[in-house]
Design a protein around this nucleic acid. Sequence first.
DNA 1: ATTTTATTGTACCAATCGGTAAACAATTAT
DNA 2: ATAATTGTTTACCGATTGGTACAATAAAAT
Lengths: 196, 196
Amino acid sequence: MPKIIAERSDVIPVLAEIFREYGYEGASLSLIASRTGLGKGSLYHFFPGGKEQMASEVLREIDGWFEDAVYKPLRDADDPRAAILEMCRSVATYFWSGKRVCLIGAFALDNVRDRFSDAIRDYFAVWQRSLQQALVRIGHDADRASDIAEDAILSIQGALVLSRALDDAAVFERAMARVETGLLAGPDQGNGHTGS
Amino acid sequence: MPKIIAERSDVIPVLAEIFREYGYEGASLSLIASRTGLGKGSLYHFFPGGKEQMASEVLREIDGWFEDAVYKPLRDADDPRAAILEMCRSVATYFWSGKRVCLIGAFALDNVRDRFSDAIRDYFAVWQRSLQQALVRIGHDADRASDIAEDAILSIQGALVLSRALDDAAVFERAMARVETGLLAGPDQGNGHTGS
DNA sequence: ATTTTATTGTACCAATCGGTAAACAATTAT
DNA sequence: ATAATTGTTTACCGATTGGTACAATAAAAT
């Protein structure tokens, strides 16, 4: 139980991990206090809004990380193919091959979704639009790019669910390989599945 | 607030809906009591094991429903293609186009996963094997059938996450259309994505 | 050195948590 | 009718919940 917390910003990643492991309701203040080594007094000094503010700032930080490490490169990179590949690599690393849960996806299934619905929606909406943009730059038309991006993101989320349910990291890795293939398959070959 | 609960078995679907809406920890006993109209005394008369037993019996009932309505037909039906199509229809109806959450998937992401890990694992494992079996009977080789089945199930779960996050039923419907297409594409055409 | 300011520990709060006890009413079996 | 069983009500339990008050302390600014 090391107490490495020096600044306020250092506490947010710890909070993120607690929420990931125990969920919003499961992360009790006493648990948070003990894991951060911070005592309720300090906690409420840093986060006057209580648990809700803690979760909300955690979501913001996660979103910020994805914006910098994933979304922006997808939109701005010179080589969209490389950016997509890098996205797959980043995501696989971030989720630690399925052992780490997506907090925002978990919140989406939870009853706390309503409380953070804006942050949750934005996270996925921006991801989808950024990925779509990269796909368009590869040569797909807008509609098909939107479809492919949606499918990729939802596959990643589903892979997290399934690999955790089966307690099998290989499920996640196989899914990521499929996602990567599906994302990088050029617009020329008319393969794949597009509904109706 | 009608009190239609007559028998013990009538209470389980109600419990299921409560757990779906509020999660395991969010479903407090007082909430359960008020929604079932049953008072703690009666609740503990029916479920001496408390909340854990309630959830456990809910999971069993869900699994039973899927076994009868989805898994068994996939394994036994004369026409595997028709069974797969029927699976897609059943699933879309069951999850009410993404508005209804998969309780077992939600539990998999929650910290209660450890408590019900066997039931959660079995639910998905049996689903995957049943779907794989139908795909093999269509003409796929075992490995590829396993891959396709895995991808389909995880896409459904991801679709539930994403469509709930974006609050958009169309996401779920599009995903189900893609799943159906991917599932029914014959083994002859060498399309699709298979990792490594 | 002294006065702000930022941080923390302790004690406390009402409310709710899951769960229990046992008296009570209703049903069923004999 | 009576006895045994099944179901329900009500009051209660200790523990924990998220949150507050405030004094004690540490750090920074003057």
